[in-house]
């Protein structure tokens, strides 16, 4: 097992109270596997990723649970050991990351610097490594000496991926890595990530609000809502046999050109506050299947198939 997240709770201190952004989330990931983490904005996807990378802002804290990467519990490590692991074990690519390059430094040099710092490479070795990484992500080697403004948006995102690969991480997390990009470039980047995952046998977590891109890239999908995982399973489980009311609704919100042209119903209302979430099931105020129990007891994830788990009191009726 490459990654094990057990009962993770990550809370933020805000002026209005404590926001339970991630509340009792558990999942795991095998070597070379890709897990899609999907849900609407504010449901805790980025917070989950930042918790795994130990990169939470100061107002956030892990309030409970454990994270094991390759068997190592991060909670047992010192600050220094963590920062070393951060590069060697796990790398994260953010939405709009391509704008994170320093505009006055050569793109290749910024990657070479990372290699020198974290891999202890000498200068000429680091330059060569930067060139190798460029080729790996589909940028001509000679462009290592160019500046960020000479790169298009898609090329910059490729370079960011090269940077993330600098120390050959075991796990790569893409947090909406294609959200700001045009569809054709999005397809290029997703294909690149897919190729890299296979070639380098990395674990990958692909975070997105766009359910429609996941079928093509992931092995498994976890559906998050208001800080909790509502359903997790094989791609086929989620798309062909969704059992949770939220999963079903969410899928129906994406038009499918193979079907009929009918405007979907959408989901009434809005996601709940995470400071004062509903007591029982967090989807209860918007759920058409809600019963008495839903407003009082929070449903646990229950196994319904080999890799398929669902958290709903009434899944038989759904």
């Amino acid at each position: 097992m490459l990654l094990e997240v057990k009962n993770l709770k990550t809370y933020f201190t805000t002026s209005k109270g404590e926001a339970k952004a991630v509340d009792d989330v558990s999942f795991n990931l095998e070597q070379g596997e890709c897990l899609g983490l999907v849900g609407e904005s504010g449901c805790g996807k980025t917070t989950t990723a930042l918790s795994i990378c130990q990169m939470l802002p100061k107002e956030g804290r892990i309030a409970g649970g454990e994270i094991y990467l390759d068997g190592v519990n991060y909670a047992d490590l010192s600050e220094k050991e963590i920062s070393k692991h951060r590069w060697e074990d796990v790398s994260i690519i953010f939405q709009g990351a391509m704008n994170a390059f320093n505009p006055v430094k050569k793109v290749g040099w910024q990657i070479a610097e990372a290699c020198m710092l974290h891999d202890g490479l000498k200068k000429d070795e680091a330059w060569k490594k930067a060139g190798d990484l460029f080729e790996l992500v589909g940028i001509p080697r000679e462009r290592v000496t160019q500046y960020p403004h000479e790169f298009s948006g898609g090329m910059k995102q490729r370079a960011m991926i090269a940077m993330a690969l600098a120390c050959s991480p075991k796990l790569i997390i893409g947090d909406e890595p294609t959200t700001a990009l045009d569809v054709m470039i999005q397809a290029q980047i997703l294909e690149l990530l897919e190729k890299l995952r296979r070639e380098l046998n990395m674990g990958m977590i692909l975070i997105t609000h766009d359910l429609s891109i996941l079928g093509e890239t992931c092995d498994r999908i976890a559906v998050m809502y208001a800080g909790k995982i509502m359903e997790i399973g094989d791609v086929r489980d989620i798309f062909e046999d969704p059992r949770h009311p939220y999963t079903k609704k969410l899928i129906s919100c994406f038009p499918d050109v193979r079907g009929e042209r009918v405007i979907p119903d959408g989901i009434p209302g809005y996601p709940p506050s995470l400071i004062d979430p509903p007591e029982g099931c967090r989807f209860c105020p918007r759920c058409e299947f809600a019963t008495e129990a839903c407003s009082t007891t929070c449903p646990e994830l229950v196994q319904v198939g080999e890799k398929h788990f669902v958290a709903c009191h009434n899944m038989e009726e759904v």
Binding site: I213, G215, R236
Partner: peptide, 15 residues
């Protein structure tokens, strides 16, 4: 390349 929910692609696409 239009993303379609639930469409699983095994072979490469024409990107």
């Amino acid at each position: 390349i239009m993303p379609i929910p639930g469409k699983m692609i095994d072979s490469g696409r024409d990107i």
